[in-house]
Design a protein around this nucleic acid. Sequence first.
DNA 1: GCCGCAGTAAACAAGT
DNA 2: CACTTGTTTACTGCGG
Length: 1016
Amino acid sequence: MDTIEHNNNEDDIRTNVLSATKGENVSPGVTGSSINESDVLRKPSVESPGTAQINKDELVFAHDGRLKESSVEAPIVRNNSQQEQHDPSDAPEQLSEPEGTVEVHFEALRNASDNNENEDVNSSDQNSSDHEDTGTNVSLNIDELPDNLYNDDFSKLLEFDSKNDDVLFNDHNILNHDIATDDINKDISLIDPQVSATLREHTEEDVDQGKDGSSPRDTTVNGIEENDNKSEGNSHSSDDAIEKQSISEDIEKLTFKESTVSPTQGTPVKATEHETLNDDANDASPRSKSTGDLEVNKDTPASIIHEKNNLLYPHRNNSLTPGTFKPHELSNQNIQNSNLDVNTKEGQIAKSGQTAPDSNINPSTTINTTIPEEQPTIFAYARLDFQSFTFYVQTLHAIIGRRSENDFTHKVDVNLGPSKSISRRHAQIFYNFGTGRFELSIIGKNGAFVDDVFVERGNTVPLKNKTKIQIGQIPFQFVLPESEKSPAAEKITDSTSTKAAKAAVKKEPKVKTEPSQPKKKQPKPAAKKEKKPAKVPKKVYTIDEIPVEYRTKPTFSYSAMLTTCIRKYSTEKGMSLSEIYSGIRELFPYYKYCPDGWQSSVRHNLSLNKSFRKVSKEGKGWLWGLDEEYIAERERQKKKQAETAAAKAQAAQLRIEQQQQQQKARPKKTVKANNNTNSNDTKKQNISQTLAANRARASSSNQGNDHQRTMKYLQEQLMILTKDRKGLPKQTIANILTQALAMTINQVTQAAKNKGITGNPLTALMDKNPQHLNLILAAAVNAATAKITNGKIKQLVDPKSTTTTTNISKPVSKPTKSTSKSVSPGVSTEKVPIVSANEPIRPSTASTAVPTSTPSFDPTSLSRFFQPRQQATRPTHVTTPSPTPPLMAKNNTSIPQKRTHDETSSSEGESSSDDNTSDDDDDEEDSSGDESSEDESSEDESSGSESGENNETVDDGDKDKLRLNHDKIEDDTKLEEEESADSNENSSSESDDTNINVNDIAGNKVGNDSDEDMND
DNA sequence: GCCGCAGTAAACAAGT
DNA sequence: CACTTGTTTACTGCGG
């Protein structure tokens, strides 16, 4: 049951730790508890007691972010509690901090939001030193921020649709609403579909958070493994699952079709088996009716179930072959088709030939009322033998529960009758591809007995052949077809650990049932074997399971990630490999969901890259650290190169300009003597130099300026907005502001990102429609206030009163006017039309593109500003106020197959392009920049690449700044920009996680940004 | 087309 | 024996 994605011990353990104390209410982005990641990480061996680990199902993503396998055994079941969490209605609660703590630990938030795992962490424990410091050092990470504000208004504000552009830039709508947090989450549905989807995903993720850490093995209870993870991870409330499904229905369906398991493929099991297996062989008993109370769900429209299944279990390659049971006569097709019938028609035997829409896709559950002998074999994955009837599991997922007479929204596949002791959704049986077996997730609050062992709600246990289950007063037995018991099957399952097994799993895990007993009689032995296979390859996540923002591979190079990770989490002694893995997962949740393989790259990088060194030895492995000197040195070199390049370029530019002037002066004269011969060369030179210069300039000055300017503006506005503090203490205010700022940044950027908008939306918005930005800020402040004050104060500011007070001083250097032209050459040239989800919005582009502040804002202009770069280059697009630029729409559409270089380059690379240095290097250096204070300070302006980074990660930088701001605020609530000289390294790594926050990471070059911010 | 860099994969060895 | 860790090598793709 332990299908936990990371089999790896330490990692898992850590993650477990993180997820362990998952609070009951895990709010996607907001977590009251603060977690010290580093601490968490450091506790390698801490086992999460009783933590429910979530088992995520398998969705395979290629390392590059492509979806490799669609197969999803949907871990549909999850704890109710979790479900509740997901429930939008709960959201308000989520907002409030559990502990009523006024202080918001951003770190925790980050963890929570980014890594759901963190949420799990006990708030109390987790508030570790780092966070405690937060009082002053409030670090904002984008990640920390709740991905979504539970506030209609807010979400509205963030809608970037073409149609939303207006909204975004026009206040009126917003003003009409109360930003009271009460409304929060009121209806996610109102939110942009994407957003809502995101929300759901987040929630789910939250639920799943623990999964990474999932302990390799499940705890075994009397031979029954309790897989909390699974239960949580796998078990999503069916409702949620459905929702998800509905969201991605189409996609899923497609996938599913590919992966469709045809019953025919299965090894037929002979009727005899069935009989043997089934003591009750008399399945024949009229199913539901026979039992009286028991009913096979007819209510549940089979179609729904089918769909669900399809969606949930779209295993392309993982084909689980149903075995055959003799009793019924159902041709394969019939069976398939019949499923629906069965479901729909109560008490009736499925009839062949009936075609349900989806019938061919998947076999569904069937109740067998007929006498076995009379009937030919039935193809089914498993069978539930009740006293008076038999339920054939022909789908990979079946819900067992009490059908509510009135409420038809609750659908159950197996109706256990009216007894109130049975929840409407009391349990789910589903096939876990990860573990290669059927599992039972207990959803009902009253739990269930499995093999005479009580299983509480939220737990998932493996189902072996003849596993006895009792729900309420109704006992039944889970029976696998004989084929499943076959040694072959066992082998497959057993060998999961091996590559072959993995491959097998991916391709065609035939009957991946548990290695149940070769002999039916002994289910227990099977259990034994199960343990071995316990190590499931890795959990494969369905797209739906993966939060949108984590579907794309981070643009950071491994070296950058490693640098960031080590900076953030490492102690003097260094970090172990497993810790590094965990750290990366924390920082870049993408790696929680993607298939393994990246670890190899990590190791490769550690070994190969001189930026990393072995610090000390621990056990069999080394503890890795950074070679700051090397990094600094490299950074310097890059800087130099960049500078020289910039200088060159500038010189060239000057020359050109002079030439032009001269030409103008004397138009007649063709070309200056200076270069007829070299004209071409010079041209080239000039162009390249110009580009370089522009880049350097743009990145360093413009971007930096924009960034700073934006942050400053936000700070100021926040300060203004919160003039009336309503008696809240400084600390609280600081926290609120921090959070609000982070929320704003996060939300805006996220929204822009979702819309495929590139550039720095914040800056653009600030320039274009500061009023709107203020509204967003106000909403964020209120949301943050409500959250931080636990709802005591719902509205700290009146959005209506927001006004733009400050003049936004734009750097002169910026190309103000034509957005298209203004775009820095370097940027413009970039190919990437599409912005990957991950791709941080480039501030630089946006900033540059952003026309100088214009008094009147054109709502439609938003699209212009945030157009993908390519478009940006094109004047036409820019000029045309197309409400919905085609490109923009991409958002979630799909998991980027690969992170395109564009993305990477665009987000990070763009800046780096100047240097040409590999991203990694840049990143590293950048990060290293933290190390070397000089670099940082200087870098801000000088290094184009870095600046680019900054730009890229506006959010990050913003966050950093936010943090700073908070500090400032706390101190005096003054906006003074003086920055205490921060010890770069220290601050980054230890004193404040803040410096090197996830945000930073997200922003690619953490170090620089943060440093800059700090310095600035 | 060459070169360098980065990413990926694989093989292999060593340690636990 | 299985797994992790670390190193090395080879290959590929991209960009300059």
